[in-house]
Measured scan of single mutants.
Amino acid sequence: MSGNGNAAATAEENSPKMRVIRVGTRKSQLARIQTDSVVATLKASYPGLQFEIIAMSTTGDKILDTALSKIGEKSLFTKELEHALEKNEVDLVVHSLKDLPTVLPPGFTIGAICKRENPHDAVVFHPKFVGKTLETLPEKSVVGTSSLRRAAQLQRKFPHLEFRSIRGNLNTRLRKLDEQQEFSAIILATAGLQRMGWHNRVGQILHPEECMYAVGQGALGVEVRAKDQDILDLVGVLHDPETLLRCIAERAFLRHLEGGCSVPVAVHTAMKDGQLYLTGGVWSLDGSDSIQETMQATIHVPAQHEDGPEDDPQLVGITARNIPRGPQLAAQNLGISLANLLLSKGAKNILDVARQLNDAH
């Protein structure tokens, strides 16, 4: 009898209710805020589980004197976190989706994509230029951005401005803007500013005609071990179906173009009346040469937790077992079709030249 009692006690200790789920994140304040929001949602869904947040620095956090596009290494903000995932030191990792490459290392998958916040870019102005827009900034004003995508589009749109690289986390960039006289304004992701509670610093939100956004911008991705079915089931509740389908289309477009950090590629997606609209573009580094096109596809946005595919093969690095396969494939095909259209119009040449120029500098 006593033996059975011990077995029952052991089973209770090993039951999922007692389990601590370890969540990996970057150390920056924004990353911690984003991770806290994901953990809060998981806690609400699984009140019996405990969650421990483990923060670590990544290569991208450490190399702050070089433009991201020049470092010449993929997975700048993800490699150390993936290493911890691989060694079973954490069970899942919360990322900004735009930091996750469209091809993940073997053994990993994006197990959830959370509801997207505003994906557009924002302009934050130096205190002396508050009330201005990019259009009304004085001639030769210097605007800071760490992104080739932003610089290429904005140089084309605002030729009277000069664009220079600015690195560091959000706090560091804002301090550089406010305390030094080098920059009249800087460009940042609206979602990051909003998550930090800095709505009052948003001086201008850039519309798609001015600057399309990065693939996955404004959404959070939760990376897990691809074979860890328990954790895949656990994080599945975080999937937002519309965000998922938009981001599958965007990531398929980028992957098929073979774009990345070192080339200016941008997108804009919208879901309306059962249609998914995808606009994508590529630019030369100075913005003088560009190709942009829009395509659409009829896609039914499923309700969360309709029964999805059981075999769960990944699409552009994403596993969404609780979302039907048909809409996911339709979104992926839309991204591939748009990429093929741009490639047929000469996108590869623009991107190759951009890559060579970026590598040469």
Rank of each mutant, 00 (worst) to 15 (best):
228 D>W: 01
351 L>A: 00
105 P>Y: 03
66 T>H: 08
293 E>A: 11
63 I>V: 08
168 G>P: 02
262 S>M: 00
291 I>L: 11
169 N>R: 11
336 I>K: 02
254 L>S: 07
244 L>A: 04
278 L>F: 09
140 K>Y: 09
49 L>K: 07
196 M>Y: 12
337 S>F: 00
131 G>K: 08
243 T>Y: 00
297 A>E: 05
93 V>M: 09
285 L>T: 09
129 F>M: 15
200 N>R: 04
328 Q>R: 03
290 S>C: 04
318 I>N: 07
253 F>T: 04
334 L>G: 15
202 V>P: 15
39 V>R: 08
300 H>G: 12
240 D>P: 03
223 E>I: 03
229 Q>V: 06
175 R>M: 13
37 S>L: 11
314 Q>N: 14
261 C>V: 01
230 D>F: 02
61 D>H: 02
304 Q>C: 13
346 G>F: 07
164 R>M: 11
53 I>E: 08
147 S>F: 00
65 D>P: 09
115 K>Q: 11
225 R>D: 07
62 K>V: 14
142 V>K: 11
198 W>H: 11
102 T>Y: 15
131 G>A: 12
231 I>N: 07
96 S>A: 13
313 P>T: 08
158 F>L: 11
85 L>P: 01
286 D>P: 08
82 E>S: 10
59 T>V: 08
237 V>G: 05
143 V>C: 14
359 D>A: 15
129 F>K: 04
271 M>L: 11
280 G>P: 01
88 N>A: 10
281 G>S: 15
283 W>R: 07
187 I>G: 07
214 A>V: 03
118 N>H: 11
108 F>E: 15
41 T>M: 14
142 V>M: 10
139 E>F: 13
137 L>R: 05
148 L>H: 04
310 E>P: 04
103 V>P: 10
136 T>A: 08
225 R>Y: 09
89 E>F: 13
249 A>K: 04
194 Q>P: 09
132 K>P: 12
257 L>M: 12
107 G>P: 02
297 A>K: 01
249 A>W: 03
258 E>F: 06
283 W>E: 02
253 F>E: 01
319 T>G: 07
71 I>A: 00
121 D>V: 02
141 S>H: 11
152 A>H: 14
161 L>G: 04
309 P>C: 04
265 V>I: 08
59 T>D: 14
198 W>Y: 11
302 P>W: 13
256 H>G: 15
335 G>I: 00
123 V>A: 12
47 P>A: 06
52 E>S: 12
151 A>V: 11
354 A>T: 14
329 L>Y: 06
159 P>L: 10
112 A>Y: 04
136 T>P: 05
284 S>P: 00
174 L>A: 06
207 H>G: 11
286 D>F: 07
77 F>G: 02
237 V>E: 05
280 G>F: 02
240 D>A: 08
59 T>A: 10
278 L>S: 07
205 I>S: 06
159 P>A: 12
168 G>H: 03
131 G>T: 09
305 H>Q: 12
304 Q>T: 07
203 G>I: 03
80 E>V: 07
296 Q>G: 12
250 E>Q: 09
248 I>G: 00
242 E>A: 14
248 I>M: 04
167 R>A: 10
313 P>N: 08
170 L>T: 07
181 Q>C: 03
237 V>C: 04
224 V>P: 05
176 K>P: 00
256 H>C: 12
156 R>V: 12
137 L>P: 02
